[in-house]
Amino acid sequence: MDTIKNYLETLFLELPKTEAVEKAKADLLANMEDHYFSLIDEGKSEHEAIGAVISEFGSVDELRQTLEIEEEPEADFFEDEDELTLPIAEEEMLTFLAGRKQIALGLSLGIMFTILAVAAMILFSEVGETLGMSIFFIFVSIGVGLIIYYGMQFQKIDSPLHDRMISRNLVKKAQVLKGEYTKSFTIGLVLGICSCILSLVPLFIFSYAENLGAALLMAMISIGVFLICYSSIYYTGFDKFVESRFFVGDEDKLGPNARKEKYGNNAEKKYVIEKMYWPVIVVTYFIWSFVFGAWHISWVLLVAGGILWSGIEAVIKKV
């Protein structure tokens, strides 16, 4: 079902966010879901049903005609068509994803080394405490170095694409690549979670050697965390080309075009409201907690703040 919803979101990505369009999207999703379940009841497999549902519904051009919406030029959001405002090319997306994959590997290895540092310290401390601490600091140094270096690379690969338009064809290409990687992502996630869960087994198997059991536990956790982080960081890279019309980097700082797309009229003022909201909530939370000693109830403010923001966000997008 997520595939159908993602397809529909992409289909409506190029259409204006009006009340009529949103209603048409909701109606179309309901029809697609009904058709999907009817095909499942007929004995179709999940993939066959999804393929049939998607193929039987119209294109975005047909939706425009039905809703009587004129197509806007893709470059309307840009004042000057220089190399930093032109729509992102497929080659640029592939370069970004290749860089993202390398960053995912580097960061995951860094996290893995910091966890392995504990395993190495426990294991080699039996030989000598000095040796155990030395290996610990070596592993930590390698891990932290990798995390810092590859963490800085995010901005490097984001900058050339920042706030540039993602064309309809590029969205479709990104969806295909994401679909191809989904199986690997699922396998990596499952193996990573299993490794973390099964990390308790060495404690029972090597109950006669507690240090060895504890070291293996940390080693298995490091492997599990590596698999989860690597597959997740790379996988989320595809979403940057699927979920938004304009590219937004990992720092989540919306550019002028992305703000205009998200907020419409008076985008800058609405963006300021969003950026001020949570700092005010957090400051109020700490003042209430520290000054008035209301730790037992102040946490409610964070929960209420999240619920309230959903309503505020819906209002400022429509104004």
Rank of each mutant, 00 (worst) to 15 (best):
K5T: 07
Y7R: 14
E9R: 15
L11F: 09
F12M: 08
F12R: 03
E14F: 10
K17G: 11
K23W: 07
L28H: 01
L29Y: 13
N31M: 00
N31I: 04
E33F: 02
E33L: 04
Y36E: 11
F37Y: 14
S38P: 10
L39I: 02
E42F: 11
E42T: 09
E48C: 11
A49R: 06
G51A: 06
A52V: 07
E56Q: 06
E56F: 03
D61C: 10
E62T: 03
L63R: 13
R64G: 07
Q65I: 09
T66D: 04
E68I: 13
E68W: 15
I69A: 06
E71F: 07
D82T: 04
D82A: 07
L84A: 02
T85R: 09
L86I: 11
A89Y: 05
E90H: 10
M93D: 05
L94S: 03
F96S: 00
A98E: 10
K101L: 03
T114W: 05
I115K: 01
L116Y: 02
V118R: 05
A120Y: 01
I122S: 14
I122G: 15
F124D: 03
F124Q: 00
V127Q: 06
T130Q: 15
G132P: 09
M133C: 03
F136T: 11
F136S: 11
V140A: 13
V140M: 14
I142T: 04
I142C: 05
I142Q: 08
V144H: 12
V144D: 14
G145V: 06
I148S: 07
Y150Q: 14
G151T: 01
Q153F: 00
Q153S: 01
F154I: 00
Q155P: 15
Q155L: 12
I157S: 04
S159N: 15
P160V: 00
H162E: 03
R164T: 13
M165Q: 14
S167G: 08
L170N: 07
K173G: 01
Q175E: 13
V176W: 10
L177T: 08
G179I: 04
E180A: 11
Y181W: 04
T182N: 15
K183Q: 15
G188R: 00
S195H: 04
C196P: 02
C196F: 08
S199H: 05
S199F: 03
L200S: 08
V201L: 12
F206S: 01
A209V: 12
A209P: 11
A209C: 04
N211K: 02
G213N: 05
L217F: 04
M218C: 12
A219Q: 05
G224E: 12
L227E: 00
I228Q: 15
Y230G: 15
S231Y: 01
I233G: 07
Y234A: 08
F246W: 10
V248P: 02
V248K: 00
D250E: 02
D252W: 07
D252Q: 00
K253T: 07
L254Y: 00
L254T: 01
N257E: 12
N257H: 08
R259Q: 15
K260N: 14
E261Y: 11
E261Q: 09
G264F: 07
A267D: 02
Y271A: 10
M276I: 11
I281K: 12
I281Y: 10
A294T: 15
I297V: 15
S298L: 09
W299S: 10
G306K: 10
I307G: 03
I307E: 04
V315C: 08
